[in-house]
Simulated assay, not measured.
Amino acid sequence: MIRVLLADDQHLVRSAFAMLVKAAPDMEVVGQASTGREAVELARATPADLILMDIRMPDLDGIEATRLIAGDEELNGLRILVLTTYDTDENIVEALRAGASGFVVKDMLPVDLLAAMRTVAAGEALLSPGATGRLIAQVLNVQKPSPVPAELAQLSARERQILILVARGLNNQEIADHLELSPLTAKKHVSRIMGKLGARDRAQLVVTAYESGLVTPGTATDGTGIG
């Protein structure tokens, strides 16, 4: 059973999400919060697997709440899926940097939202590589580009290649097929890359790959042969 926390400042929105989750046979709502600060306190007090976090909330916004939760070692198993009104919201990138595992828009179909929640609760990142790349590129156009992490230099050529494939949206099986590796070897490579870069999950690997310039939206100049 997937234990879900809901964080949104609008009561009607929370109620709608609660009804949706309660109707799913493999999920249950274990708590609700109306502010970011309440979300952090609830996460620390209530065992849960997933928190559905609105980006914009009073008292403490969803980005800072995500940062506090993701930075708490005792909450390492709690995954965060952020909610936004528009998929072009520049705050999404900050939420991913803070530790969110993905994002969804509030008007998506209920069946798709439940599928997204299951994906993130299972430990996977929920990102559309194309949309995420364009969004990050848009943010970088109005902000100073992030410096290339020094940890990136610690990656082997093979690890850099795999990081590019992760940013392109390939899962472990697809990476294994592309590089003629076993799925277990591909998984070990991804885990090692996350450790070297200090990434909480694959979502942060995607952000790092784009922000460092290792991958650029809409190009296949990375040597992977993938557009």
Rank of each mutant, 00 (worst) to 15 (best):
I2M: 14
R3G: 02
L5T: 01
D8W: 01
D9I: 10
D9A: 12
L12P: 12
L12E: 09
L12Q: 13
L12M: 14
S15N: 11
F17P: 01
L20S: 06
V21C: 03
K22G: 12
K22L: 13
A23Y: 06
T35F: 07
G36C: 10
G36L: 03
E41K: 12
E41H: 13
A45T: 12
T46Y: 15
P47I: 01
I55L: 15
I55G: 01
M57W: 05
D59N: 12
L60A: 13
L60G: 12
L60Q: 14
I63A: 08
A65F: 03
R67V: 00
L68S: 03
L68C: 04
I69K: 03
I69H: 03
A70L: 05
E73K: 14
E74I: 06
L75P: 12
G77D: 15
L78N: 13
L81S: 02
L81H: 02
L83H: 02
T84W: 13
T85H: 09
T88N: 14
D89F: 06
E90P: 05
E90V: 01
I92D: 04
I92C: 03
V93C: 04
A95R: 07
R97D: 10
G99T: 02
V104C: 14
A116F: 03
M117Y: 06
A121P: 08
A122R: 14
S128T: 10
T132I: 01
L135H: 06
Q138C: 06
N141I: 01
N141L: 12
K144C: 13
V148H: 03
P149D: 02
L152A: 02
A153V: 11
A153P: 08
S156Q: 04
R160A: 10
R160C: 10
R168D: 07
N171Y: 12
Q173F: 04
D177H: 13
E180W: 13
P183R: 12
A186V: 06
K187I: 09
G195P: 00
L197W: 12
L197K: 09
G198V: 13
D201Q: 07
L205V: 08
L205T: 04
T208S: 05
T208R: 09
T208V: 09
Y210C: 08
E211M: 04
S212I: 13
G213S: 02
V215L: 08
G218P: 15
D222Y: 07
T224E: 11
T224P: 05
G225K: 07
